[in-house]
Design a protein around this nucleic acid. Sequence first.
DNA 1: CCAACTCAATACATATTTGTATCGAAATGC
DNA 2: GCATTTCGATACAAATATGTATTGAGTTGG
Lengths: 211, 211
Amino acid sequence: MSRRPARTRPTRAQTRAQTRERILDGALEAFAERGFHGATQEDICERVGLSRGAYNSSFRSKDELFFALYDRVIERLQSRLEEATASALSMPGSTADNFLKAFIASYPFDRDWYLLQAEFGLYALRHPAMASHYAERQGRILVIIEGALADILREDSRIVARDLPRIARLILAVHEGSMFQGLLEPHEVTSGELLDFLVDLMLAGAATSVD
Amino acid sequence: MSRRPARTRPTRAQTRAQTRERILDGALEAFAERGFHGATQEDICERVGLSRGAYNSSFRSKDELFFALYDRVIERLQSRLEEATASALSMPGSTADNFLKAFIASYPFDRDWYLLQAEFGLYALRHPAMASHYAERQGRILVIIEGALADILREDSRIVARDLPRIARLILAVHEGSMFQGLLEPHEVTSGELLDFLVDLMLAGAATSVD
DNA sequence: CCAACTCAATACATATTTGTATCGAAATGC
DNA sequence: GCATTTCGATACAAATATGTATTGAGTTGG
């Protein structure tokens, strides 16, 4: 039989998959730190203690690795968001505030992740073939947000259904911009601050104008 | 005399300055299209019909050119914004809506400019020495926005003075994010749409919740 | 247990890219 | 007008990165 329960050594396919993952890990770091063009095979391999042989054995070209990493990263983000929204919606008495807070908290705020997805974005804008892929993935994220917001509508009527798509995009946009500002000037703004402020504006609205 | 009014040929300093500017123009295009690392001397020079000799004669290194271009770009943006806010404030009966519209309209929405400043941003985040420069320039822009908003406060009490810094940052953040989304999916969102939406949220506020 | 095969490490060749050095042309100042 | 200087183009050399070829270790399957 090919599958033995008491196997002490990892199978070849497993080690191969592990090698692939390790290289993707290294690429994630290297791309974030030095950018796509700036990162070299040596950069990537050094970080995870592999040789360029493993690199070239696992990926035919730099672009192929890029796409593989891209898909892995986006899928991870998507599952994170799905979990977060699901748990936020499952808790009873969840309001828009709660959901948005949960969403914000679940979104990755770490530097490397931001740098990487920003790099992805630029790459996508410069390579039309990839732009559609990127847009499709981002569309899924938007749908997740919209869906969760729609569910919340039942309990919180301050959000107008018609505006959902734009609100979702606004949230995404603010997240992008605030992440950048937060990383550039950590002492001036923290990442979630602007998003919270946006939530205040959306929900409390003109009520803040009472001076 | 060194300055003759009827000079038919451009002086040497002028042509030199022109060459510098042309190279910066080429670099602006090349960086936007292929990124900082991706752009080569050949790329840059081809676009403006100069040789690499002119490049190396004008700039000691790629970084030096980068900083020069960076400063030129930011200064241009700043003067554009100053003009726009000045004219918006000079017209009588200007409201926050008017100002924000003028600001949005004056902001550069073209693809190349966005790609370039995004590239600058990433570069700055990766190179701490440059981050402070970048932050300083961005701070000036924020001050411009804040100042104009403060002036408008006299006529439009819906904005709370305390929130000015955050509002300015919010505007900047939304601009960043919406530019990206607009470039990625031109048919789904237009660049200024989200900003207008944000303005609606800020000024009309909770009034939109009447369904 | 052995032969065939797979994967990863090392070595190599090719292709770019950068920076320097050289050279010609054009302008500057006397 | 002419010697000098400066700028920009071409040629050259060095460095770096990618992808391929080769080799050796370890695994798979009969």
